[in-house]
Design a protein around this nucleic acid. Structure first.
Lengths: 174, 174
DNA sequence: TCATTGCTATCAAGCGTTTGACATTAGACA
DNA sequence: TGTCTAATGTCAAACGCTTGATAGCAATGA
């Protein structure tokens, strides 16, 4: 661990890839998100879930699971916790009474706003680091990559790859 | 995507952030990695661990944990499995006999090469999608962000990378 | 009309990781 | 020299998520 001889790291091709840079950046960002959200008692997963519900109120658990890239059980667990805290509310679907729609409560909106302020602060920091032009460029490139990779993933195994949304939101709107 | 009423998604500021693009791209990439590595019987975590050991042979478990952003126990679990398969070897440190250094075996090198070929294929696909120039640009921007965020994270919590208990960890140098 | 198909929600079990605590060991300092 | 600090490795328990399987409800087609 105190090797005077520099024979490594930069010489390995695997560390000079876009994939590695992407993973590195995302890990650092995730760590920072967790750090900022901890004082609020919210995990990143909680934030993502509440954000999705704010964007599309009345979302069902299954649809939510597809968007977040996790299983319905994981969503149920999170929803249960958030409901117990009073941030989220489950309500029966008007037509399909077996289905439950999800809504944010007042305290949920409040908590989400606080969390979102932290995340926005992080975003601001990133933009400031890169500059507005480069930040916009980075965002564009990332979306380009994400789109291409999602298409590839769906094409490779038509149906479910890892846990891929077959995107059939029929209950998402009523 | 047949919603007659477009009242959402693109109107929310939270979905128009670099952070969201980053997370999206990384999720898609991770799913694809897992998909490609599954036939080899390797999880992405296994690949990352073996790669780190290849880059720096003789790495200790604790140091590995810091680099991978997980706890030493998680590393121990992975190492145990990889050792049982014969891909990894633990050896006592010459000076500190309580510490164990990690090395790849022949079959480990072989397996890693096969996995690395898959990842390289993915990298190639990304570069082809973006073009060489944009790919290089993306990589540069990502590293820039990662460096800045790691610095921020270290500054906020004088110690490690948030994830691991910074109780003993700061010698991230090798 | 009835049966089939598809999706949702939920329970039970298993695996992997984190948190917390403890034994061991080398280096630093009095 | 002896003690104290720092860092590694490991054990035990808790938490979270995934896989697999089951029940209920609605829309489609014969």
């Amino acid at each position: 661990m105190d090797d005077p001889v520099e024979k490594k790291a930069s010489s390995d091709a695997a560390l000079d890839r876009v994939l590695w840079a992407l993973r590195r950046a995302e890990m650092a960002m995730q760590a920072l998100k967790e750090q900022r959200l901890r004082p609020l008692g919210l995990a990143p997963a909680h934030y993502s879930l509440m954000l999705s519900v704010r964007v599309d109120p009345g979302l069902t658990g299954a649809e939510l699971a597809r968007r977040l890239g996790v299983t319905p059980q994981a969503v149920a667990s999170l929803v249960g916790k958030l409901e117990k805290r009073g941030h989220l509310r489950r309500r029966a679907h008007p037509r399909h009474r077996h289905i439950q729609e999800l809504y944010l409560t007042e305290s949920g909106v409040e908590e989400l706003a606080a969390a979102d302020a932290e995340i926005a602060s992080l975003e601001h920091q990133v933009v400031q680091t890169l500059g507005a032009t480069d930040a916009r460029q980075l965002k564009k490139l990332l979306h380009h990559v994400a789109d291409a990779m999602q298409a590839t993933s769906a094409a490779a195994e038509s149906g479910g790859t890892t846990r891929q949304p077959a995107s059939h939101g029929d209950c998402t709107q009523s």
